[in-house]
Amino acid sequence: MARKALLISPELCIGCRGCQTACKGWNQLPAEKTKNTGSFENPADLTPIVFNKIRYVEVPSEKDPVRWLFVSQRCMHCDDAGCMKICPAPGALYKTKEGAVAFNKEKCIGCKLCVAGCPFNVPRYDAKDKISKCNLCEDRIAAGLEPACSKTCPTGAIKYGERDSLIGGSKKAGFAKVYGDTDLGGLGSIYAFKDSPKLYGMEENPQIPESIVFWHKVLKPLAYWGVGGAVAASLLHYVVIGPHKDDEEVKKDG
């Protein structure tokens, strides 16, 4: 099946946050008790009950008092997902056939390693220490619907569709580079940025932490081959050299 994705276009986003409410509605997430901290942005961050949010980014502008960008933030549904890589519990995090990173709370063991594995600081944990994040409305998609956020979005700032055609369409619309096109094997939440990702508060080249890559490429195989090798070496030693002989035995023998 062709990989699906969400194409997020801050240039089309009006910051209405219908996506935030729609997400809560569909996923039946309770509200956070928040306070106004001098910004439109609220809640301040993703939480176990806030799967997506709009970040309100103000950057200086030459023609206007300010440039006000609205950037939808959520799980990026990486192809090469750091969370999945590090997760010790099989089935707790898994890929849907559309390519989304979904989760199964029953299989989650609450170790929270995925928090460290995620380059985007997305996974959160609920009161029972189970992972909680955007799963691209896996259940809606299974029922032939699109995710709640993209369904609600009035301007098409969040679009759901076939990843390739979304990228193609975006390039046609004049976005030379789509953020997440190739990063981490290709993200499932891709962005049509007019300017450098940094301006939108995103990292230029997101990477899975190096230590995890090292662990994955070296330590993990070593744990497998290393112990096997140790056993094999022991056997070889036993056969070739045999049990240890002490001096006196040697003398005796001699």
Binding site: A116, P209, W215, A223, V227
Partner: peptide, 20 residues
Amino acid sequence: ILLSHLAHNIAFDYIVFAVA
């Protein structure tokens, strides 16, 4: 966590080798 994860696994590799 990242540091610990690395240390845990390096130590693990050593220990399983040493124990064998």
